[in-house]
Amino acid sequence: MTTRSFKVSFYETEVYEGKRGTTYTVRWSVNGRRHGETYKTSPLAESFRATLLVAANNGEPFDVETGRPVSHATPAAETTWYEFALQYVDMKWARISANNRKNTAKALTKVTMALLRTEPKQFARSTCARPYASTPSTSSAATKPRRRSARSCPGSGATPSP
């Protein structure tokens, strides 16, 4: 969940003249947290600063973490990894071979398990999680693999579903 704030302050554009050239940094803060964006040319920096000022003048809330106006958020930022993985599988599943399905499910399961902060209690091994997380949710039952019961995943501690 992102935190939004209307408390935005803008600072002068900073000019840095170094060995490799001059850079221009736009500085602003959202709810006391400082943010900055560096550009190679002054017009680019001033253009970006102007878009931030327009958003603030229009009363748009700013995201505290990114420092950007909410209207600048990309659709990718609104999608979680798990939702993306499920959408990817739903899109590809019908057109790929069985071996490719298996390898796609393995790869997505490994990445999903690596992104988790703690291992799920109901799955002791990623092979037990694979049929639950990496199969299409909207496809027909004929293309879905058979779901494993808790008994087929030793040591998982999961109870079979009715």
Rank of each mutant, 00 (worst) to 15 (best):
K106P: 00
F48P: 10
P75E: 05
N100H: 14
A50L: 12
S71L: 09
N58R: 11
I96F: 01
Y16M: 06
R147I: 11
T143D: 10
R125L: 10
T13V: 15
V89N: 00
M91A: 15
T80Y: 03
Y16N: 10
R147V: 09
P131Q: 10
A129C: 05
E46V: 04
P136K: 02
R20N: 15
M91H: 14
A55L: 07
V26I: 04
T118V: 09
T80Q: 04
A76L: 08
A133Q: 09
T74M: 04
P145D: 01
T66H: 05
R34K: 13
R27N: 13
A142R: 10
R20H: 14
T25F: 03
T104D: 05
G21L: 02
R20Q: 14
P61Y: 08
A141L: 11
G36A: 12
E119Q: 08
S152M: 05
S126E: 10
T38H: 05
S97Q: 04
R130I: 02
E65K: 07
T25K: 05
R4F: 13
T143P: 07
R34M: 10
V111Q: 08
E65I: 09
R146S: 12
T159Y: 08
G32K: 11
K144V: 06
Y16H: 11
I96K: 01
Y11V: 02
E46K: 13
F10H: 11
L115M: 08
W28V: 09
F62S: 03
T38C: 08
T22S: 11
L115P: 00
R95F: 06
A129P: 01
L53Y: 06
T41V: 02
T66W: 02
Y11L: 11
G59F: 02
A45K: 07
S5H: 05
G157F: 04
G59L: 02
T118D: 04
A158Y: 01
T159K: 13
